[in-house]
Computed example of a mutant assay.
Amino acid sequence: MANLSIKDVPEQWAQALRQRAARNHRSLQGELMSLIERAVVEPSAGLGSSMTSTQPGTIASTGQVLGFDRLGHPITRRGTKTIEQIAAEHRLRFPQPITGGPLAVDIIREDRDSR
């Protein structure tokens, strides 16, 4: 693998990259690799590509593209639901509560007593 080095990066840019890496739960090295990979993998604009745009913030057929993962695949958001909406859907799908299974407290006690 090749090693690349960028010199004389303005401190403001370096700080912005560190913050971006922290937001994405990556090291600075990992964030830079992600940016480079995305630049290499993405189809170049202006080359007559018939693919739909997948730039961050655009709307694709599957939802809003928020960014790209380390392999260049789009990260999309299809919509948002409140916890109440999710709970209501869950109650519709599973109207009867699950019964007859072991209680968590019994499992923990059994595990503790087996030592």
Rank of each mutant, 00 (worst) to 15 (best):
W13V: 10
R91M: 10
W13E: 08
Q96P: 03
S114H: 07
S53H: 05
G63I: 03
V105E: 15
P43C: 11
K81C: 09
R78V: 06
T58M: 07
E42R: 15
Q19Y: 11
D106K: 03
R18V: 08
R78A: 15
L92V: 06
A16D: 10
K81R: 06
R18S: 14
T54V: 03
S49H: 10
L92W: 00
A39F: 04
A87F: 01
D106Q: 13
A39K: 00
Q96N: 10
I36C: 01
Q19G: 11
R112E: 09
L47S: 09
L35P: 00
L71S: 04
Q85M: 06
M1C: 05
L66A: 07
T62R: 04
G48E: 02
S50Y: 09
Q29L: 14
R20S: 08
R20G: 12
A88H: 05
S61L: 09
D69R: 04
E89Y: 03
E11W: 10
K7F: 14
S34A: 15
L32W: 06
T54N: 02
E37M: 14
S44Y: 15
Q15Y: 12
S50P: 04
I108F: 08
G46C: 13
K81Y: 15
Q55N: 14
P43S: 08
W13R: 13
G100W: 02
G30H: 03
Q85A: 05
G101T: 10
L28Y: 01
M1W: 07
G100F: 03
S27Q: 02
R18M: 08
R77Q: 07
D8T: 10
S50V: 14
A2T: 14
S114F: 03
R91Q: 13
N3K: 11
A21D: 01
F94W: 07
D113W: 01
E110P: 00
S53L: 11
A45F: 07
L92E: 05
Q85F: 12
I86G: 00
R18N: 07
L17V: 09
A22E: 07
T82N: 01
A104E: 09
P95R: 05
M1A: 10
D69S: 12
S49I: 08
R18G: 15
Q85C: 07
R26H: 02
M1L: 09
L103V: 15
A22C: 03
E31G: 04
A88Q: 05
A14K: 11
L17H: 00
R109V: 11
S50T: 14
I108G: 00
R91D: 07
T80F: 10
H25C: 06
E42F: 10
S5D: 05
Q19L: 12
E110G: 11
I6T: 07
E37P: 01
L71G: 11
